[in-house]
Structure formats: C-alpha cells, structure tokens
Simulated scan of single mutants.
Amino acid sequence: MSSDPTATRQAPAAGGSVHVLVVDDQQMVREALATLLSLESDIDVVGQAGDGKEALKRLGELGGGVDVVLMDIEMPGLDGITACEAICTRHPRTRVLMLTTFGRPGYVQRALDAGAVGFLVKDAPSEQLAAAVRTVARGGRVVDPALAVETLTRGTSPLTDREVEVLRAVAEGGTIADIAASLALGQGTVRNHVSTIMTKLGARTRAEAVRIATEAGWL
C-alpha cells in the first residue's frame, strides 16, 4: 500500500518496472537522464519530451502507462510547474518529480502547490535520483533537505497572482503603457501594483524587484 495517504495511484506491482517519462528542454541533459535511469534494472524510461506541452501529448499517447514524470521547471512554452498542474488534473495516477538546475525555495512551494510529490536539483548524485523515482512511484514524497529548510525559512511568496503577472511583464522590459495594454489594466492600476510589489519585496527599483522575485523562485 502507498506510504502517502493522499496518493491517488497504487504503487507498481512487486517486481514490476517503474515507468518514467523524462521532460527537459535541453536534449543532451534529457538523454543523459534517460540513459542514467535506464541503467537501473527496475526503471523503464518509456518516453522523453522537450517541454510541458509535449509531455502532455506523450502522456496521452502512452495511455496512462507512466508512473513518474521527471520534470524540468524552466522550459520554453509550457513550463514545468504549469505542466505539473495539468498532469495532476488530467492524469491523477501519474506522479510528478521536479528536477531543476535552479534550487530556488519559491520553486519548491509552487511545485508542491501544483501537485508535485518530489523536488530535486540536478547536481544530486545519480543514485539519489533513482531512489527518488522509486520513492514517489511507491506513493512517497521526496524534497531536497536543504531546499526544504530554506523554503520553510523564507516562507511563501508575498505576491498575489495579479502582482506576479505585472512583475513578469516588467521583467520583459515593457513600459507602464505596454503592461497596461497587455494585461487590460489602467496605467494607474499598473503603477499601483508596481509600487506595492516593490514595497513587499523591499526593492528600490523595478529591476531589483524582478531580481529578488526571480532568485526566490516566485516568478
């Protein structure tokens, strides 16, 4: 039985392989991860995808035969956290293990909120990755210990969803008028949001606000 009472899928049958889909936009990294996992006798990499959209397509093609999706976060198009949320909704029996270069505490909280059951950084030893895949496949949860502590220490993002949208638009280099037009807001409303964001983050400039939020993993 699952060690996690909230798990929505049964663990792979005893003696059966854990079926894994590897998702990463960097082909060399993706193929290296797939090769490493394939060396494990009880892990079977059944597919690869280059972004979140392709991952959803591959899951549909595989017909629910995936136990674990090993998912990168920062990818063009559909990012890993957004894709994770979609996977958990459409394929509740498939569990998502996030694996990223960027060990940002905000990413951990956002990923867990999206339904991920694990979070590791890419510099983790290969044996740790394989063990994490097995653990989440059996219904457990795995979070890098150092990141877990930092996430608890830093706390959740102080920004609202709308403020995140505004700050992302700021990060793209748009003017107040550009941001207002893209988000269908008044320019005064955008200015108020920007001011509130800077106050919440303790930033002196818009650029500093973007940096603080990015480093924390809140964008």
Rank of each mutant, 00 (worst) to 15 (best):
I73K: 01
V68S: 07
L167Y: 05
P5Q: 12
L120S: 07
G217A: 11
V133Q: 01
G140C: 08
L97Q: 00
D42Q: 10
L78Q: 05
V190R: 02
P12W: 06
A83Y: 11
E85S: 15
A137L: 11
A32T: 14
Q128Y: 07
A171H: 09
K57F: 06
K122C: 08
P76W: 09
Q109F: 00
A55G: 04
S3A: 05
A203F: 07
L62T: 03
G60N: 06
V194A: 07
I197L: 00
V69A: 07
R93K: 15
D79I: 02
W218Q: 00
L70K: 03
D144I: 00
S17A: 14
D51W: 14
G118F: 13
I176E: 02
G115P: 13
A130V: 03
G188H: 08
L112A: 00
L36G: 00
A207D: 13
E165C: 11
L70T: 01
H193A: 12
L33T: 02
F102E: 02
G139M: 09
T199M: 10
I197C: 10
D67Q: 03
V142N: 04
I81D: 05
V142H: 01
L59P: 09
A83T: 02
T6N: 13
E208Y: 14
V23W: 08
E208W: 03
T189M: 07
H19C: 10
T8H: 13
D44L: 13
L21G: 04
V29W: 03
L39I: 01
L21F: 07
A169E: 14
D79E: 10
P145Q: 08
A7D: 15
A171M: 12
A83C: 07
T8A: 12
L36M: 09
L183V: 08
H193I: 00
L129Y: 04
G106N: 10
G188S: 15
W218A: 02
A203I: 02
G188P: 13
T196Q: 13
L99M: 07
G77Q: 09
